[in-house]
């Protein structure tokens, strides 16, 4: 009976969660629509020449102008989105195709950056756990510097180092993995490094704090008393209990990379969803912005939902939060 109750409870929670995701994406896209509505200017001003006139221009203006009330347009947008017919951008390109292309790039970037950040931050955290020693000071110092500088600056320093001085990595562009896998990795390298340094610095800060807290706890001390070596204590007593924190940090880094990497993408001329968002805003393309924001919200919410699932399964004790 207990198992069944648990199951029911979990299903209920899942349903609630899915409902909240649905509502979130609707609210978010509605907000974006509202903002577009009141934003100055329209798509026609962005696309046409200042003084373009004549019937072609008029037809275009009519085709992008807002007819029907805001709610009518929003409802038809929602219907189109949910049925998969995403329509065209104001400049006439197929939204679904464009997003598909760019989503691949953004996802590669997100996964790669998070991977790199974990590869950098976890070993560094483990090595520098002991406060006051050299590894701690060095790691703290470097991560503070990285966190104090705006991300586009670190991006530029990386470009200057690897492309300008050393000439081994390209500063811009994106090569699709189906064309060339080495090319794909090389074009991903600098933008991913840029993002991962940032995430790594944040992870080091918070993860290391968790490690230090856990290593002082009774469980770790007991291991010591039982004769375990320092590395063993570190792994079993500190690392394992700190994993939930790490997972949370991974989730937040990943969602940040998917939804918020516009600046990095612009610096590296990386054709991802972030720079597409910027274009959508500048060209006052309500449908494109709405679609993108819904997808971003979906991605972020799903990431957190998966996080909760992972945390739930990893630590049965958290089930007490009923």
């Amino acid at each position: 009976m207990v198992a069944y109750d648990c199951y029911l409870f979990r299903m209920k929670r899942l349903a609630k969660r899915l409902l909240s995701i649905l509502l979130t994406i609707i609210v978010v896209s509605l907000i974006v629509f509202l903002l577009q509505e009141y934003a100055l200017g329209d798509s026609a001003s962005y696309i046409l020449s200042e003084d373009a006139g004549g019937s072609a221009a008029d037809i275009f203006r009519a085709s992008v102008s807002a007819d029907g009330s805001l709610m009518e347009r929003y409802i038809s947008f929602l219907q189109a989105f949910l049925s998969g017919r995403w329509g065209n951008t104001v400049s006439g390109q197929d939204i679904a195709g464009t997003i598909a292309d760019r989503a691949g790039a953004t996802l590669s970037l997100a996964v790669f950056s998070v991977l790199l950040s974990v590869l950098i931050s976890v070993p560094v955290s483990l090595v520098s756990v002991k406060p006051g020693k050299f590894p701690d000071r060095a790691a703290s110092f470097l991560s503070v510097i990285i966190l104090s500088l705006p991300s586009f600056l670190t991006s530029f320093f990386l470009i200057i180092l690897f492309s300008f001085l050393l000439g081994i990595l390209p500063p811009a562009g994106y090569v699709h993995p189906s064309v060339s896998v080495p090319g794909w990795i090389r074009t991903l390298m600098l933008p991913a490094l840029s993002l991962s340094l940032l995430y790594a610095a944040m992870i080091i800060r918070i993860f290391r704090k968790a490690l230090r807290e856990n290593i002082d706890k009774p469980y770790a001390r007991a291991l010591y008393a039982a004769g375990a070596s320092y590395p063993e204590v570190l792994m079993k007593g500190a690392l394992k209990p700190s994993l939930p924190v790490l997972y949370t940090l991974i989730a937040s880094s990943f969602s940040s990379a998917v939804a918020g990497a516009a600046v990095t993408e612009t610096v590296f001329a990386f054709p991802g969803l972030g720079s597409l968002m910027v274009t959508a805003a500048l060209s006052r393309d309500a449908v494109l912005s709405g679609t993108l924001v819904m997808l971003a919200a979906l991605a972020v919410s799903s990431t957190y939902m998966i996080l909760e699932l992972v945390l739930f399964m990893a630590d049965p004790r958290s089930r007490r939060e009923a």
Binding site: K16, I25, V27, V28, V32, L35, G260, M277, V293, E321
Partner: peptide, 30 residues
């Protein structure tokens, strides 16, 4: 604890990239 409206609100705010928000707010009237 984590009830739906709160979660929804916080997810909403997290999903709106500040960059996009700023771009739009900018466009509202400079």
């Amino acid at each position: 604890t984590l009830n739906t409206p709160f979660l929804m609100l916080s997810d909403t705010m997290k999903s709106l990239p500040p960059i996009l928000l700023a771009l739009f707010l900018n466009a509202l009237s400079g």
